[in-house]
Amino acid sequence: MSTIETGNEANPTDINLEVETGSLPVETPEPEPEGFDIVIAGEDEKPKQDPATNAKYAAQRLERKRLRELEQTLAAVKRGELPETLRVTPESPDQPPSIDDYFSDAALEKYGFDTARAQAAFQAALGVWQVKATQEHTGFAAKQAQKVQEYEAKSIEQTQAINRHYDSAEKLNLPDYQEKEDALAAMTAPDVVTGIMQLFPEKSAAIIYHLGSNPELTKRLNALPSQQAMIELGRLDAKLTLKPRGKAVSAAPMPDEPLNGQATAANLASLQKKMEEAADKGDVETYRKLKNQLKGVK
């Protein structure tokens, strides 16, 4: 088989074809783009993505819409523009004392028609009301500040989790991933997509893509109580696996062989097994490292 080495594709002299002398010209097929398909473990489905289309869009970065939405909301909160979900409702203080309650004919009769006593009683009642109103306002401000601080701390954790999710999603090279995520977001409550990103860090991209591709399944999950829906998502997390494009997912167990030091032909089976395990877990980084070691064996 011929080997093509390209340094600068614009200069044809940089292309080196290694073929046997006297042999016929050999057509070198273009390498199949790397990436993964989302499949149910045990089901040998055909890839849903066209390799040519995938190659065209693989280099494009995802829009990271959920991350942008979170960052925009957080920025608004820091400016003091609080959404209703973050607003603390202040307790309505009692009405201040009315002067009529102290200087009407009936009220003055209680004080022996002594306006000085009535005035003193009114000032005392007004002072008590002012202290109570100040305490209620201080308590409200403290509660509001605490709620904002909790939201900001939670948002930082969410931002980190969502960033990790999108980093993993980009490595899958799914050209229509953003389309599927948007479809799922349109069918569910606002926090469902980001919740999946946080609760299922290893396979969040696969779960979101699968649910966005299967609206009927998403509708069934929406109809379930929250706890039951979480159980079903956990089952889906266990079922979904990554299948390298162009390769079937083998159900046959691979023999266990220790992997020590540099990869050699003796541990080829072990490398292949570890690659399948990484694919099952959605660990793209480990999968590609093992793949590079496997190339050294072959």
Rank of each mutant, 00 (worst) to 15 (best):
H165I: 00
H165K: 02
D167S: 15
A169E: 02
E170T: 03
E170F: 07
L172C: 12
N173W: 04
P175T: 06
D176H: 07
D176E: 10
Y177P: 04
Q178H: 11
E181Q: 09
A183C: 04
L184Q: 04
L184C: 10
A189Q: 10
P190Q: 06
V193R: 03
T194A: 02
T194P: 04
I196G: 07
M197S: 04
M197Q: 09
M197G: 02
M197V: 01
Q198C: 05
Q198W: 06
F200W: 08
P201Q: 02
P201S: 09
P201G: 03
P201K: 05
E202S: 03
E202T: 08
S204I: 10
A206V: 00
A206N: 04
I207V: 15
I208C: 03
I208W: 04
Y209E: 00
Y209R: 03
Y209N: 05
H210Q: 02
H210F: 12
N214A: 05
P215L: 13
P215A: 14
E216Q: 14
L217M: 14
T218G: 08
T218V: 09
K219Y: 10
R220V: 02
R220G: 00
R220L: 03
L221H: 08
L221W: 06
N222Q: 10
A223V: 11
P225K: 12
S226H: 07
Q227T: 11
M230G: 12
I231P: 05
E232V: 13
L236Y: 07
D237R: 11
D237W: 10
A238Y: 09
K239L: 13
K239Y: 15
K239C: 11
T241I: 14
L242N: 03
L242T: 00
P244I: 11
P244N: 10
G246H: 12
K247W: 15
K247S: 12
A248E: 14
V249L: 12
V249S: 05
S250P: 00
P253V: 14
M254K: 14
D256M: 13
D256Q: 15
D256S: 15
E257M: 14
L259M: 14
N260Q: 13
Q262L: 08
A263V: 11
A263R: 13
T264K: 08
N267R: 05
L268C: 06
L268N: 08
A269R: 14
L271T: 06
Q272W: 04
Q272C: 00
K273D: 03
K273W: 05
K274Y: 07
K274W: 08
E276W: 13
E277V: 09
E277H: 06
K281T: 04
G282V: 04
D283V: 01
D283A: 01
D283L: 02
V284I: 15
E285Q: 14
T286L: 13
T286E: 06
Y287L: 10
K289Y: 00
L290S: 04
K291E: 02
K291F: 07
Q293F: 09
L294H: 06
L294V: 07
K295P: 00
V297D: 09
V297E: 09
V297A: 07
